[in-house]
Simulated assay, not measured.
Amino acid sequence: MSPNEVDLTEPTLMTDDLLVLEDPHFGPETTAVVTGAASGIGQATAVALAANGLTIVGADIDEDGLEETTELAERLDVPGKIHSVPTDLTNDADVETMIDVAAEEGELRYVANIAGMQHIASVSEFPMEKYDLLLDIMLRAPFLTAKYAMPHVRATDHGVGAIGNMSSVHGHYATQDKPAYITAKHGLQGLTRAIAAEGEGTLRGFSVSVGYVLTPLMVNQIEDTAAERGISEQEVVEDVMLGQARTKELMTPAEVANLFVFGFSRHSKHLNGGDLLWDGGYTTTYE
């Protein structure tokens, strides 16, 4: 690898990578739902919340990946437990079951809507079945999850809790060849604000927006973007992914997971309807 090349190996999650905070609701009696928990940001967030002592319901359609997440948590010896709930987020009954299980495990206070997917194509060439699938997973499912979860959060003492949504720099601006993803992320910003508007101050909604994160999803889209734009994979990383950023390195899943830990904690009581924009300067600077 040349000095200018970016290492695309997903980092190994270590205990020292995880933010651990003291919070009156961070304990085994509190449950948190994490979607997309089988890999990447979702996996790191499930483990990070378990490191803070919470009981986690990790949801994903990938059952093998969920098993890897629980094994990772056990290997790191985190205090919280992760319960795997295989979930198809396009199936309404599965989503309802996911929330029911979380409520049975303890006081459901937190939801991290992280599951996502990507498809690279222009608007005119975008397959509608892919558009529908992306919107179902990344916008409809978070809405339905919030619909089922909010009554449980309200039923806890003082109704304290939060729903955190995984947005993106693409929830703030648009680039070419990602129309469905961009539409979903912009919509998710609106859902976040709607949750905050109805949360009466104690049930908060917030979103997390980051640039490119070193996950399997990101690595897989490099090849697709290279093919779509007719450039090399290294040019995709250097010019497309990091070209506009001021911080010239990709984020790690643990760094994103820590934002959800912070967002759920008592330190974020004024984060309500807002967005944690950790983008390395993508959307706020230009040359």
Rank of each mutant, 00 (worst) to 15 (best):
P3W: 05
D7F: 06
E10W: 00
T12M: 08
L18Y: 08
D23P: 00
D23F: 13
A32Y: 08
A51Y: 02
V57F: 00
V57C: 02
A59P: 02
A73N: 10
R75I: 09
L76N: 04
L89D: 08
T90H: 11
T90E: 15
A93M: 09
E96R: 10
A102N: 01
A103Y: 02
A103K: 03
G106P: 00
R109M: 11
Y110T: 09
Q118C: 12
I120S: 01
E129Y: 09
A149Q: 06
A155F: 04
A155I: 01
T156P: 02
D157W: 11
H158F: 11
I163P: 05
S168W: 10
G171N: 10
Y173P: 00
A174T: 15
P179G: 14
T183A: 15
K185T: 12
H186M: 10
H186A: 09
L188K: 03
A194H: 04
L203T: 08
R204Q: 08
R204T: 07
G205W: 06
F206D: 00
M218F: 09
N220H: 10
D224W: 05
T225R: 06
R229F: 14
V237K: 02
L242I: 12
G243I: 13
E255H: 05
V256Q: 05
G263N: 04
G263A: 06
F264R: 02
F264C: 01
S265V: 00
H267D: 05
N272K: 00
N272F: 04
D275E: 14
Y282L: 14
Y286W: 12
E287M: 08
E287Y: 13
